[in-house]
Design a protein around this nucleic acid. Structure first.
Lengths: 152, 152
DNA sequence: TTAACATGTAATTCAAGTAGTTACAAGTCG
DNA sequence: CGACTTGTAACTACTTGAATTACATGTTAA
């Protein structure tokens, strides 16, 4: 199965907080941008808060960025929204037959290999900051706007 | 959610085919080693067959390796058992608000980033062959056996 | 040819995770 | 006080994974 869209929604939220920082970003407003419901936004925002990425307090409208954009990588978001802390990316079948040489060694043989692969993934995510994403969004928006203008 | 255990089971099957190549590896036998049921083994074996990794034919007992162990990487197995062909590893929320700069650019901004991360993962998996896994299993088994002997 | 056995596959069930939705308690502020 | 917001819990619908059962199809040997 795919990695939860909580990850991309988390990135969406952080990007939105930057690009819309002049206004108050309530869960209701952000839900409209993501196109989901406010409760889910609040849930994910809560996860981002736990990770120290956003400031948000009960009763006070709006969330704000808690750190500089260049200090937040996608890996931070990945860890914030994924419950991968207790669950590995790769699932390994449990209870293989201990009477079989393969069965009794497959798990311990695969774990370090899977770890290396997972770390490669995380390294790639850690190399991209939210600032990079925001810049990309701005660039893409400029390009599509200029295309639209020239078409008129 | 985690990547399906079909992946680790697929590796288990291929390793077993090598280490038990003197015997006939029926789905029933392999199911006992993996500790699951024969139908699931046949399903995964069928996927491995589609990928050209094993030979198996209706009515004829047992599966065999279709290629050399050093010519099979974990990435081959990953692609064989994962239906990732039509589904990306990272899920991106659909239908974000096109009226919002973030909403209308988030998907196209994230896709290439996620692709890079996914490729990093696949590169790591492609660097490990089934031969490596089999050697590791043999090594681990030797070590645990010698420990047992010395304990007597 | 037939009986025994193996693979291929469909259907069913159960469990778990995702995401959408509603509802409401708790907190804040004019 | 009253309007608004966040934090959560509960519920539903949906999807996927995995286990299980059943049976059609194919093969082999007696």
């Amino acid at each position: 199965m795919s990695i939860s869209t909580r990850f991309s929604v988390g990135i969406h939220i952080l990007s939105l907080l930057e690009l819309n920082k002049e206004s108050v970003n309530t869960s209701d407003y952000m839900a409209k941008s993501v196109n989901t419901n406010p409760a889910l936004i609040r849930k994910i925002t809560g996860m981002l808060k736990m990770a120290g990425l956003v400031n948000v307090r009960p009763g006070i409208a709006g969330a704000t960025l808690a750190k500089g954009l260049s200090d937040m990588t996608l890996l931070d978001v990945y860890h914030a929204v994924n419950v991968t802390s207790d669950k590995e990316l790769f699932g390994i079948h449990e209870n293989p037959n201990p009477a079989c040489p393969v069965g009794r060694n497959i798990q311990s043989s695969l774990e370090p290999i899977f770890s290396v692969a997972e770390l490669a993934l995380e390294k790639a995510l850690g190399a991209v900051t939210i600032e990079d994403v925001v810049k990309e969004i701005i660039e893409k928006d400029k390009r599509s706007n200029s295309r639209k203008d020239s078409a008129i």
